[in-house]
Design a binder for these strands. Structure first.
Length: 509
RNA sequence: GCAGCCAUAGCUCAGCUGGUUAGAGCGCUAGAUUGUGGAUCUAGAGGUCCCCUGUUCGAACCAGGGUGGCUGUACCA
């Protein structure tokens, strides 16, 4: 007895950490990108697009002791066995591009670029394996004014996106200051050194874990809420107290006075040459910020900003949102950093063997968008502006198409109902679709040379007062009948009443 | 990666110590309504109870393994 062969049905599902993005969010992101681009353009940056994947060695993510790329990046082998990796940021590809085209580029070279990047990590709320970044970088700029400009531009970007001053902060530190700190407590300046890395990571967590948590991480280690244990840096008590002194010195002054913060740091790392160099750089940035009128309500110096350990060599900065928000369940949400950057003088050296100084700023578009969506009022339903022309008579499709064409020529978005159902379903479709207007031309209207226009927005309002069905139907809520020739103008009047009539070439949203 | 919790209809969930045809609300489809989205009423569709193996006369429920999700933590260029 042969069993009927089972048809294989794949499970329809989006891969973990990836997502489908619906219309409102696609539009919101496009709008956000346009605003960021305008700021970058105004600072003189030019666009550049590089490919989505690169040779893995060019991205610099090969595991040192194995012949395959780092697990954090998505990689595959080409037909010639060479490893390719999806880009995990836009900076590494820029370094490759500059190295490859070095002689033909103006130096300094300013470029901006946006696009998706991919990281093979555990996804979390607001954290995906594909997300969008929008970077601006200056390559071949050794002067500290370049870093200062990046910070100020970061502030300008956030304000251009409508985030009020005071609701965000650009937080700035300098890797040289951190190196100086480690030097003063006798820890190797080598960024590859285990203790060096552990200490910096601990400092980075001050914001999250507080003084006590950082103290534990610097010492023996810390147990988290689930009972899992994180091994610490194993510092001695005196060393820990120096680090905590540094982190906390000037913390109270962080948003009051940048110079005072630097004074505090100078006391802790004043014996280290590299530390002093870092502080002097920050002092120069402070002077530039102040001269340009960027106070601590926009840019502050902050001791726990560390950034990744990979390639930063000088000033580092993060853009953080300070306002409170609640998620769907009413829990307070911390946004974290929505942008970051810093100086990376060694990245291009990997390719060219010569030092090419560079600094840049990167907006985390996906996370910023997720954050803004949680703000009150962000998810108010936006009224659609698509006019739906009902197709009541299959034999008259050409006539409905003509109506639709006229509406489009009149500057409106319009579509014909192209499903197979009757009038009731068509009205329901228009409602679902969020259409403001339904255009109805049945046999009666056509015979009379008329069309019926139904104002669906007004109809919804009217329906709130009507509980009786007969009344609702007889009232023919909010509809008018006009001569066919006047259709376009009449639809415009209804759209204008609801503020949906386009006045320029841009799509309103 | 490590640790904890969780997995039943499209969604949110109920399902007593293992016992026949697994339920609710919302949503969806249709009818009441001859040409009208809302409201109301009625009817209908929709489930490999995450997967595999085991225990048992019998498993949505118990055990082991797997997969997926959430939370914390680590990593984060």
């Amino acid at each position: 007895m042969a069993k009927p062969a089972k048809t294989f049905r794949p499970k329809a599902r989006v891969p973990k950490g990836l997502r489908d993005v619906a219309a409102p969010q696609v539009r919101a992101e496009a709008e956000m990108l346009a605003k960021i681009r305008a700021v970058y353009e105004s600072y003189g940056f030019d666009p550049l697009e590089t490919s989505a994947f690169e040779y893995a060695d060019a991205l610099g993510k090969f595991l040192p002791d194995e012949d395959r790329p780092n697990e954090g990046v998505f990689s595959f082998q080409d037909d010639d066995e060479q490893w390719l990796s999806l880009r995990y940021d836009l900076t590494a590809p820029l370094a490759r591009f500059v190295a490859e085209n070095y002689d033909g580029l103006p130096k300094p070279f300013r470029r901006y670029q946006s696009g998706p990047v991919w990281r093979n990590e555990k996804p979390g709320p607001g954290r995906f394996r594909q997300f969008t970044q929008f970077d601006a970088d200056i390559v071949g700029a050794p002067v500290i004014a370049a870093d200062a400009e990046m910070c100020m531009m970061g502030a300008d970007v956030l304000e251009a996106l409508g985030i009020p001053r005071g609701d965000y902060r650009i937080r700035v530190n300098n890797r040289k200051v951190l190196d100086g700190l480690l030097e003063t407590i006798g820890i190797s300046a080598d960024a590859e050194d285990r203790t060096h890395m552990t200490v910096l990571r601990s400092i980075d967590k001050f914001d999250k874990l507080g003084r006590r948590g950082v103290e534990l991480l610097l010492g023996d280690g810390r147990k988290d809420e689930s009972g899992d244990f994180t091994k610490g840096a194993g510092l001695k008590a005196e060393q820990i107290s120096v680090v905590l002194d540094y982190v906390e010195s000037g913390l109270a002054l962080a948003d009051a006075d940048r110079a005072a913060v630097l004074d505090g740091w100078r006391k802790v790392v004043g014996t280290s040459a590299i530390g002093i160099e870092g502080i002097d750089e920050l002092a120069e940035m402070d002077a530039l910020f102040s001269a340009a009128g960027y106070g601590t309500d926009r840019i502050e110096f902050n001791s726990w900003i560390v950034r990744g350990l990979g390639y930063y060599t000088g000033p580092v900065f993060e853009a953080e949102l300070l306002m409170e928000a609640k998620d769907e369940k009413g829990n307070a949400v911390r946004f974290g950093s929505v942008g970051s950057g810093g100086r990376y003088d060694g990245l291009i050296e990997r390719f060219k063997g010569i030092k090419v100084p560079a600094t840049g700023f990167s907006v985390g578009v996906s996370r910023l968008q997720a954050a803004l969506a949680l703000l009150p009022g962000a998810n108010d339903d936006k009224q659609s502006d698509v006019v739906v022309v009902l197709a009541l008579d299959a034999a008259n499709m050409a006539g409905y198409q003509a109506m639709t064409r006229e509406l489009r020529a009149g500057g409106m978005r319009a579509e014909i109902y192209l499903g197979g159902s009757g009038m009731k379903a068509q009205m329901k479709y228009a409602d679902r679709r969020g259409a403001p207007v339904a255009v109805i031309e049945g046999e009666d209207e056509r015979a009379a040379g008329q069309v019926t226009l139904k104002d669906l927005i007004l109809g919804t309002e009217v329906s709130r007062e009507i509980t009786d069905n007969a009344e609702w139907r007889e009232s023919q809520a909010a509809q008018i009948t006009v001569p066919r020739a006047d259709m376009v103008e009449a639809v415009k009047v209804i759209l204008a009443r609801h503020g949906l009539l386009k006045t320029d070439g841009l799509h309103r949203s």
